[in-house]
Design a protein around this nucleic acid. Structure first.
Lengths: 159, 159
DNA sequence: CGGGATGCACTGGGATATCATGGGATAGCC
DNA sequence: GGCTATCCCATGATATCCCAGTGCATCCCG
């Protein structure tokens, strides 16, 4: 289960779009009919996606690693303290697909993406992202430079 | 698992090409049906390839190198920071082969390679590369001189 | 050691299935 | 009723499956 590649998909007049086969194939075999979309916790205008199992696993890790084993019980009871996993859950929506992989992109995500007729889907390994195509282009160019610098920095260490 | 030799393969009218048996044999025995292609992170016009396991192992090493073992949670949540492993994932595609080892080379790779009827496959040990045959010829000539100089330099060090 | 037979690797091409998308029709829901 | 979601069908493009041929390597046998 590793999401790869970047794919531009259409958003039609009815607000539907398609989760491409390359991404559907990465969903768990026993849960191919739905997935989760959630707002990026720290990057405005980006929507993250994952399988339900993948999203739940991330929340689980977050609770354990951020709060410790005993934190889980505390978080279940303590409504006053900040709960990062709860925050993400609130920003998430389960998306049901039609059998052919299409789904209606909820308006709240359309709004933050500011897309009208195309959405860029980007595989990030553990998860995938939805981007405004133009903004992704910029981010991609900037990341390409950072990647080149990263590789150069590795080289100076041992060569 | 070590990819060796350089092999020129045909790219047919339907955009298919063949992963030669010499390379298929280096794929893990339990995952012979697919492999991964990804754009070179710092060399335009070159496409890298590896087994799924080999690619994933590289990403894993990359994450540890870049962030330390405890960075996993942060990288899963932080969409703003540059993530080299995520960058490579986005540039990668899983390629399924037919039983006889043929596959369709995705258009995005055909474009960056600027190939029309032949692709040079070059074994690099841990991974392999796809080159435009002409560009590989140049690279190869230049590497030959560099290798000779490298060997000479070795000699002057202790003789 | 030579000659033939056999099998596999690579290439080509037609037929079929799947993918991605558009659009109509139907069924709820405020 | 107007809006949205769901189901269904249609279509062009692409990918996949299947079969066929050719050449090279290996193997077997005398």
């Amino acid at each position: 289960m590793a999401f790869r590649s970047e794919i531009l998909i259409k958003l039609d007049k009815k607000g539907r779009c398609l989760l491409p086969a390359a991404f559907r194939d990465e969903l768990p075999a026993d849960d191919r009919g739905a997935f989760v979309l959630y707002h990026s916790p720290n990057l405005a205008g980006v929507v993250n996606g994952n399988s339900r199992a993948g999203f739940d696993a991330m929340l689980e890790r977050l609770r354990i690693e951020a709060l410790g084993p005993k934190g889980a019980l505390k978080v279940a009871l303590d409504d006053e303290a900040f709960d990062p996993a709860g925050y993400l859950s609130a920003s998430a929506r389960t998306i049901a697909m039609e059998p052919d992989g299409r789904f209606t992109l909820p308006a709240e995500f359309v709004n933050v993406l500011e897309v009208s007729d195309g959405v860029m889907l980007v595989g990030k390994g553990d998860k995938f992202q939805l981007w405004n195509p133009g903004r992704w282009q910029q981010r991609r160019d900037s990341d390409r430079d950072k990647m080149a610098a990263f590789v150069r920095a590795l080289g100076s260490g041992d060569a």
